[in-house]
């Protein structure tokens, strides 16, 4: 079986900068995958190369088993929504019409509905739209294309929280009705955490985390309270981000806590808070933070 997207050994070097460093990634079948990482980590470069808008220095990308480069049959099955998409000097209505010609599964009815929901003026020139409205237009095109491979690269510039919520809800509804392969690059991880089946994190051009979202949840926990009690609970576990003030301390422990741990924490009067997906990603981007755990029982 051919995977929907196969990326192997992908490297992209700009003059003095290694944007992607031997990236491998396979996405197969309908799913929503979150592509996360700090700004400049390589997320946009990766998506641009998958969408054949940029060429790699080494390695290759296959979409539906074929290279997408100058491959109209493959490109028509994809849609790529960029952050701050630029448009030619045309009206909103014309941009929608052009998109409808290009994408074979275009749903005009859905586009109309979304245009109404995002309150977009169809007879206005795109250059007269605000940044948020331009983002909304890109999102409408990205969803109405109903493309088998749908790439969103931080598509929400200038959109407020309400409009972003609308985007997530419509993406979810569309995905439920018409499953497709969605790659969503974002740094607003907690906003989309529930939508994601899989999280791929890129840091300095490399994939540093690739896991099912459900496996990540509950894997890290912050334990805080009196230092002696905290040490007693976390003894023997990998820890990170230890912080102290007076006799109090807070530390992040790896590995899920079981019922017994929770009972002990309660007996020791400790506070236990799971890390959100966003916080886990922050931890993953900082592997050097791991602390040696040679502390003895307090």
């Amino acid at each position: 079986m051919t995977a929907t997207i196969t990326v192997s050994g992908l490297t992209r070097r700009y003059r003095h900068h290694l944007a992607l460093d031997d990236v491998g990634l396979t996405v197969d079948g309908p799913s929503i995958t979150g592509l996360v990482g700090r700004n400049g980590a390589g997320k946009t470069t990766l998506l641009r190369i998958v969408a054949a808008q940029e060429l790699p220095t080494a390695g290759r990308v296959l979409v539906f088993g074929a290279s997408p480069i100058e491959n109209d049959a493959v490109l028509r099955r994809m849609v790529f929504v960029r952050e701050d998409q630029t448009f030619p000097d045309i009206k909103v209505r014309d941009a929608l019409k052009a998109a409808s010609w290009f994408h074979p599964h275009w749903c005009g009815e859905l586009a109309e509905t979304l245009i109404g929901e995002f309150d977009l003026p169809t007879d206005r020139a795109i250059k007269r739209l605000s940044r948020g409205m331009r983002s909304a237009l890109s999102i409408v095109i990205g969803l109405a294309a109903r493309a088998e491979v749908t790439l969103f690269d931080e598509p929400y510039a200038g959109l407020d929280a309400v409009a972003r919520r609308l985007f997530y809800d419509r993406l979810l509804a569309e995905y439920a009705e018409h499953p497709r392969t969605v790659l969503l690059s974002t740094h607003l991880i907690d906003e989309v955490a529930g939508l994601l089946e899989r999280v791929v994190m890129i840091d300095r051009g490399r994939v540093v985390l690739d896991a099912a979202a459900d496996d990540i949840r509950g894997e890290w926990t912050t334990v805080s309270g009196p230092s002696a009690a905290v040490e007693q609970l976390v003894a023997g576990r990998p820890t990170r981000g230890r912080r102290r003030i007076a006799s109090q301390e807070s530390v992040i422990v790896a590995g899920a806590l079981d019922d017994i741990d929770h009972l002990r924490a309660r007996e020791l009067h400790l506070r236990v808070e799971p890390l959100s997906l966003q916080q886990v990603v922050v931890q993953a981007s900082n592997p050097a933070a791991e602390e040696p755990n040679d502390r003895t029982h307090a």
Binding site: S31, D169, L172, Y175, A176, G194, L196, E197
Partner: peptide, 18 residues
Amino acid sequence: STNELAAYYRINPATAAK
């Protein structure tokens, strides 16, 4: 249904199905 749960909890339908 899977899709009703997904829309209500704002989660991926695959998660709801699981």
